[in-house]
Amino acid sequence: MEVKDFYFDLPEELIAQHPLKEREKSRLMVMDKSTGELSHKHFYDIINYLKKGDTLVLNNTRVIPARLIGEKLESGGKIEFLLLNRIEGDKWEALAKPGKRARVGREFVFGDGKLKAKVIEVKDDGNRIIEFSYKGIFEQVLDELGQMPLPPYITETLEDKERYQTVYSKEKGSAAAPTAGLHFTKELLKEIEEKGVNIAYLTLHVGLGTFRPVKVDTIEDHDMHSEFYSLDKENARIINETKERGNRVIAVGTTSTRTLETIGSREGVLKESSGWTDIFIYPGYEFKIVDSLITNFHLPESTLIMLVSALSTRDNVMKAYNEAVKERYRFFSFGDAMFIK
């Protein structure tokens, strides 16, 4: 299958630059995955499509302020690091800009020396391994000095950092938000539970590979980035029992989907697990765990729109996306939502 099969014309002004004031008031497109039938609602209407006994699976990762701007220790030349993942202790993998300044052995300072970093390795893909030194607790220093790593297509400043976090975020480690979950409020989640819908949690720390364009012509030639995930025993039990009853497992976001499908055995049984996944889901994939999906609207020719197409069909999804453009839906991280039922 060709990457160009997933192209659609997306006007730049439809890429949402800021979140709505009220999370649950974004628009919601509902699509029947079998027929492709569409309807237009608001996100707070999602409760009408959830049934007693269903399970919503939420990714409780929390975005860290992973963007650090500092200067070279000797010359004062500006440097920007974007933290991708913690290797161990105070060693992190990071993107450096400009890369030519971040050579092995060079040291950088942030916040008048509150935080220092030394480049200890340059990887084949250009990413750096850096080691930090500081006084106190690293997370507190990072909270003080770091900035929220908004995606490159968002050019406006985010006034409230919490609007790039889900209301249930807990486990720190993401370089980007699991954006399908941004539409939920605590009140809406309470209403959903009162209806008899189960809520299960897992963790997948979202990497910036999510935003990297697919640079090959044929889908099968694309290499996915790896991301860390974990699912505990209790939440695995909730999901397994849902499948056993014949109720739906509804993944909130492509990150929850990728985690569930990574862990799920061929028989569709989940077990407590943690590790790294580079699963790439595109049309032709047979889902083991996920029945339905809540997701945002994704960019053309992205791995995310390919995953969404796998749950329905390419034709249904591309038709829906063209309809979304026509109806002026807001796209990507701060945009509107889609429920594939």
Rank of each mutant, 00 (worst) to 15 (best):
I238D: 06
D291I: 13
R237M: 12
V249H: 04
G284H: 08
F280R: 06
T295P: 06
H225S: 08
S274D: 12
V252R: 10
N235L: 06
S274G: 07
N235V: 02
S230N: 06
S273D: 13
E241M: 13
V252S: 12
V249A: 09
R266H: 11
R245T: 10
K243Q: 00
D217A: 11
E234P: 03
T295D: 10
S273E: 13
E234I: 14
D223M: 14
M224K: 01
I263D: 01
I279F: 08
K288V: 11
I294T: 02
D223V: 15
V269I: 15
L293E: 05
K288R: 14
I289R: 09
I289H: 01
S274I: 02
A251W: 08
I289L: 15
R266Y: 14
S230G: 03
G264Y: 04
T242W: 06
T255R: 02
E241P: 01
L293Y: 00
K233S: 15
T259Q: 06
F280M: 10
H225C: 01
E220H: 10
W276A: 03
I250T: 00
T259E: 01
E220V: 15
Y229H: 00
T259H: 05
D221P: 09
I238N: 01
V252D: 04
S230P: 01
F287K: 08
S292T: 14
I239M: 07
E261H: 10
E244V: 12
L270D: 05
F287Q: 09
D221W: 11
E220W: 13
F280G: 00
E220M: 12
E267M: 09
F228C: 01
R245W: 05
T259P: 03
E272N: 07
H225E: 05
D217N: 15
G246P: 08
E234W: 06
S274N: 13
I294V: 15
T262K: 05
R266T: 15
V269R: 09
E220K: 14
S230T: 10
E272H: 05
I289D: 03
N235W: 07
Y282E: 07
L260N: 09
R237P: 03
D232K: 00
G268V: 08
G253D: 07
T242I: 11
E220A: 11
E227F: 09
E227L: 04
T257P: 12
G268Q: 07
R248K: 15
H225V: 03
Y229T: 01
G246M: 11
I281L: 07
S292W: 07
T242C: 15
T259I: 03
L270Y: 03
T242G: 09
I279R: 02
G253F: 07
T218C: 11
Y285S: 12
T277A: 04
R266W: 13
T277R: 01
N235E: 12
I289V: 13
G246E: 09
T255H: 09
H225T: 06
R248W: 09
L231S: 02
K271T: 15
R245K: 12
S265W: 11
V269Q: 04
K243A: 04
T255P: 02
I263P: 04
E244I: 14
T262W: 03
H225K: 10
Y229K: 05
M224A: 04
Y282T: 10
L270Q: 03
F287P: 05
L270M: 05
G253W: 07
S226Y: 02
V269H: 08
T254Q: 13
N240R: 03
